[in-house]
């Protein structure tokens, strides 16, 4: 097991970022860490990287407590907004430093990518714009090829074209050298099809962990005349139901994987799939939200 969290708690003063997170990840997979802002994604990743010390519980990365473990930190890299590099080094020298620190670092790949994205390698890291900084960080993270590489909200502030290219490179490099890659975010645009597994955090706890395709299949969006939507929704778990136009409604419902939704022909109902982003957002919606899912599930029994 590469990554193990056992009842991990982390407090910042009085607020609790993680309140008993238990999570086990293994295998060379691309795993999505999803959750709303404040769900505990960044804290969990920073704990896994050894940057933060948990207030309670146990964490193990490659069999070691990551806090102050040279072994764990040499095999782990966290790419995040606060990632910083020695201030006196130009980007090219930073790549050299990374190469010395991480034996698997591919400087040639990193240099070619910087050139492709038009980032001058004689610039200083602090001179870069937010989008360029994140691009550089992600390039460094991909090229490092650490057995566990974590990207916390990596695509923020990037152009659509750059995002798309970076994800393509990430996938290609992952296929060429499989390793465990964690990608966190609350906006997923473009990332969601890369996930083999998804982990959904909510209020500092694990809400769901499983295969990404199966997770997506567990949801459907039905739309049509409000009365028909309500009737169909009464038989299943409903995460969200709202009127779109007068008399029309849309609902996100949970379906048993492997079953087809039975719908009367001519009722005007339409069923479409739900994107991963919409699914987890519906699952973690504050009002009603997961509490109502639970209530609906137990009521229908």
């Amino acid at each position: 097991m590469e990554v193990t969290f056992q009842q991990v708690v982390r407090q910042y003063g009085k607020t609790e970022a993680l309140s008993g997170l238990t999570l086990n990840l293994d295998g060379d997979k691309i795993i999505g860490i999803l959750g709303r802002n404040g769900a505990g994604k960044s804290t969990a990743l920073q704990i896994a990287a050894g940057h933060l010390k948990p207030s309670g519980g146990k964490v193990s990365i490659f069999g070691e407590n990551p806090f102050n473990s040279l072994f764990a930190s040499a095999n782990t890299l966290l790419v995040h907004e606060g990632m910083s590099f020695p201030p006196a080094l130009r980007l090219n020298a930073i790549l050299g430093e990374m190469e010395r620190a991480y034996p698997s670092f591919d400087k040639k790949l990193a240099r070619s990518l910087l050139e492709h994205f038009g980032i001058p390698d004689n610039a200083f890291h602090i001179q870069l714009s937010k989008g360029m900084k994140n691009t550089f960080n992600m390039v460094a993270g991909i090229a490092a090829r650490t057995p566990l590489t974590m990207f916390d909200e990596p695509l923020n502030g990037m152009d659509a074209g750059v995002r798309s290219d970076l994800l393509q490179v990430l996938l290609k490099d992952y296929i060429a050298r499989p390793r465990m890659i964690l990608l966190s975010g609350h906006q997923l645009e473009g990332m969601e099809d890369l996930f083999e597994e998804v982990v959904i955090l909510h209020q500092g706890r694990l809400l769901h962990h499983g295969n990404a395709d199966e997770f997506k299949e567990g949801f459907a969006r039905i739309s049509g005349p409000a009365s028909e939507v309500r009737r169909a929704a009464s038989k299943v778990q409903v995460l969200e139901l709202h009127e779109t136009l007068p008399g029309m409604a849309e609902a996100i419902i949970m379906v048993q994987p492997g079953t087809t939704l039975f719908m009367n022909e001519g009722s005007g109902l339409k069923s479409t799939s739900v994107s991963l982003g919409d699914a987890y957002v519906a699952m973690t919606r504050k009002k009603g939200g997961i509490d109502r899912v639970y209530a609906d599930a137990t009521d229908s029994r």
Binding site: H51, N68, S73, L77
Partner: peptide, 12 residues
């Protein structure tokens, strides 16, 4: 913050 980017521990 910068040193955390590189392998090591606080003692190192």
């Amino acid at each position: 913050q910068t040193d955390l980017t590189f392998p090591g521990s606080r003692t190192i």
